[in-house]
Simulated scan of single mutants.
Amino acid sequence: MGTVMNDVANHAKHLLNQSGQPKRRAVPRVSPLLHQAEHEMIETGSGKIAVWHLLGARYADPPVLLVHGWEDDTSLWTPLIALLAERGRSVVAFDLPGHGHSEGDRCSLELAAEAILTLDRRFGPFAGAATHSFGGPAITRAMLDGLKLARVVLIAPPVAQARQFERAWRRYDVPEDLISAALALGHDEGRFFDLAAAAPHMQAEALFIHSADDAQCPANEGERAAKAWPGARFWGVDGFGHRALVQDDDIVATVAAWLDSSSAFTSR
């Protein structure tokens, strides 16, 4: 019996560790617009991260930071980069640790936050940030660790990391006893981040955007986090799933307006 319990515990630890290892694309992608940008590899505690700094006509203004989601890359931001460039805004985009052209094989929230803070020291202060999916809790973690932002957009953020892992494990048919053991271990070790619990400590003006048909990150959880974030606004849409939000012209226009001037936001 003891051997079986030890096997479950060992498999649970492995499952938790494996969940922090993103799968890379065979050929990393970069937003085509960033081929015009200054590109460099910047050292962080998890290795070098790939960074692109696109100067806008209003180059004296602080740049906007773009943070992609899990197993994604800067190509996600192509429509927003184009619109911000039209507005003359400078943009900093990067590949998270373990993603794209960045080094490493792991990407915890702590490593992501450390990368964001490294960029803030190099290019900041940032005027604001746009995030998608995993980028939302990553920027929130960075703000808990000292990042200062005037405004931030969180598009389809996962809120309760434990629930996110649980949903993912069930999608891959992980046995229930192993899921229970991994969740218990994760809670015991303090591995799970809850964006809604961190939200009351935030000071940036925040706009949450979530699609009602998002199966990966439920919209009701995003709304719960927005209600806990002082002064945050929640914009619920439908029909965009998880990723298409960042490709829609109206949503991208709203995000660009929010980042350029928070007073420009009008919900529909």
Rank of each mutant, 00 (worst) to 15 (best):
K23A: 12
S133M: 06
A129D: 00
H53F: 15
S46K: 00
A115T: 01
G88D: 12
P22T: 11
L111C: 06
G135C: 10
L84Q: 06
R106A: 13
G136H: 02
F134M: 14
S31H: 09
R25F: 15
E40P: 01
L84P: 10
H53Y: 15
S108K: 02
S102V: 03
A130Y: 12
A142T: 03
G98W: 07
E86Q: 15
T78G: 04
S133D: 10
T140L: 03
L109K: 04
E38V: 10
F126T: 14
L55P: 00
R89P: 05
A50L: 00
G100R: 05
E114C: 06
F94K: 03
E40K: 13
L33E: 07
T44I: 03
G104N: 08
P22I: 13
A60H: 14
L66I: 09
P62G: 06
I42E: 07
T118D: 02
T44Y: 01
A142W: 08
G104Q: 01
A130K: 09
P32R: 11
E86P: 02
R58H: 13
D120M: 08
T78D: 15
L65Y: 12
A60K: 12
L144G: 10
H39G: 05
R24T: 13
I116Y: 01
T140R: 01
Q36I: 05
A50H: 11
G98S: 09
L33C: 05
A57T: 15
D72S: 15
V30Y: 00
I116C: 08
F94E: 02
P32D: 11
L117I: 08
R106S: 09
D145P: 00
K48F: 04
P97W: 01
G100L: 07
G135A: 04
P79A: 10
R29M: 14
P79N: 07
H132R: 12
R106Y: 12
A138C: 07
Q21W: 04
M143Y: 01
D73R: 06
G135R: 05
D105R: 13
P28N: 06
E43D: 14
